[in-house]
Design a protein around this nucleic acid. Sequence first.
DNA 1: GTGAAAGCGCTAACAC
DNA 2: GTGTTAGCGCTTTCAC
Lengths: 344, 344
Amino acid sequence: MNDADPRSTPSTTPASPRRAGIADVAARAGVSVGTASKALNGRGTLKEETRARVRAAAQELEFAPSTVARSLLTGRTFTVGIITSDSYGRFSIPIMRGAEDALGLGEMLAFLCDSRDDPIREQHHLRRLLERRVDGIIVAGRRTDARPPIGTNLPVPVVYALAPSADEADISVTSDEGGAARLAVEHLVRTGRRRIAHITGPHSHASARERASATVEALSGHGLELVGDPWFGGWTEAWGRFAVTQLLRAHPDVDGVFCGADVIARGATDALRESGASLPLEVGVVGVDNWGVVAEAARPPLTTVDLGLQEIGRRAGELLLAAIDGTPAPGLHVVAGHLVVRES
Amino acid sequence: MNDADPRSTPSTTPASPRRAGIADVAARAGVSVGTASKALNGRGTLKEETRARVRAAAQELEFAPSTVARSLLTGRTFTVGIITSDSYGRFSIPIMRGAEDALGLGEMLAFLCDSRDDPIREQHHLRRLLERRVDGIIVAGRRTDARPPIGTNLPVPVVYALAPSADEADISVTSDEGGAARLAVEHLVRTGRRRIAHITGPHSHASARERASATVEALSGHGLELVGDPWFGGWTEAWGRFAVTQLLRAHPDVDGVFCGADVIARGATDALRESGASLPLEVGVVGVDNWGVVAEAARPPLTTVDLGLQEIGRRAGELLLAAIDGTPAPGLHVVAGHLVVRES
DNA sequence: GTGAAAGCGCTAACAC
DNA sequence: GTGTTAGCGCTTTCAC
């Protein structure tokens, strides 16, 4: 805070060399700025020797063209915003990563905003992103329940990931919940299970409800009936353990359990094992999520449905790029998951 | 791709209203752009009525001032870059979140870049961030081993988080590995354990080595000796289970285990429980990480050392803001962790 | 082939 | 109190 302090200037300033502008490059190469610009961008018709000289000058000066100046001119910033409600949690992370994959290909950089599920924060972030003239926005949720659109009549395209927009005219990408259930049932049936139960998360979650009804349907497609009703509870290991204990009491002959999440499945395998069942011989278990730390550490390691979150992010990124390029694809895009077979 | 397609224009374009500029606002309010600017920014001396009129016009036009134009003028973009080598993994997530907390207070937005531990990608991202004229950069690692500086003589300040820069003149924030070990030992001793062993990750990790030696020291501070040598292995549950099995064979009377990670601790508790030990009565276990999904689901739930990753991110953000403001604090900043007591 | 000049949207200095 | 003007760093006509 003491500007006059003679010590501070040399010792604490960590070398902030003045940045070279295109004018500096032009001067050093002995050409005009216009020429330098053309040389660097491969535009216009220049003598190869001039081009080389400019390039050399740029190199020596470590010239990094300012995209902010360019943006002002072109109206494009080559940035997008990602607003996640998930506090960088388990769901938004693979989505972000997938989105970055797709966007990186388009030379875009992403601003990350965490709304913490607070609509106020969300609107705040939206406004800041718009002020920064992002070319587009991805809104990533952590549940598959539809959500209200983040805004209407926005000046840039928006793509919703995982949690689709309630407005069907918006662009949304989400997971295939029914498909996930079918993959799980398919696997259990194929491995000889006939008395299959379903333990899942809260009934208030659309994904839990959809998976449950798809499970019943898929079973009946094989001439089978779900053992008991679906067990709705929480997305926790404790619930998986508890539900399995109850389940065994009511239906000791169960030979397959489809769990709505890997954590539930892990709790289920623990409880089954500790009740004396031999896994996977006597009971087969399938989870959902393919969450490494849970699925791989379980005993036995979990066979599970990967919902393809990263793929959802990638699709969202691609759809956003397309929309930015003027070819939006409105509607709900469903990404298929896949089964990861381990030992359970 | 077909520009002439008459359908595409009205139906597929999702309402991209022309953005109002300050000139539009000025026109609508019947003032000049300069006046409008002053009105909106609270600068200069204007009649209150004029100010109100301009504000109203801005509101009606949904005017969102372009930060890119402003940046060009002021040289500040109010953006920072976060380069993480962790693919948004377990370590970088809380760090990012903490950083966003601190930066958000400074009205900054963060570009997220995933280097995937690839120096080429890292340099690529660095260049793109510099082109975008970020005001500063945070480099987040996933290990506490020192890393080479990302560049020399950069035009913006850089703060390293978790993985400090090998150059001590750089600004780095990292965890207190020795302190973590002391907290764990302290707890075990306080709860009456006297025969304490240590199971941890690979010897190639600085954090494993530092915790191990600090553990030995802390024990000797209590007149105790580590039971056996530290068990170096992997950061997995399987390693925790295996090591405990061996440990019990060699030292059946062990009554406390400090594990270098929650996953190891979880494996350890499982193996202990299954060997017939009553937890936490006969053996106390302490982990490191406070990783919710692991620590809370363990049986019993794990007592563990939280390294304060989010706090590291917050400090990194603060230090970066300070450096941007011209008061950098070079050197290694160590953030203390804290013990989270659960039942193990 | 190359240079000169206009202008992207905004702010700040200076007129009036 | 308010308007006018220059200019941030770059690209892009259009002269020459």
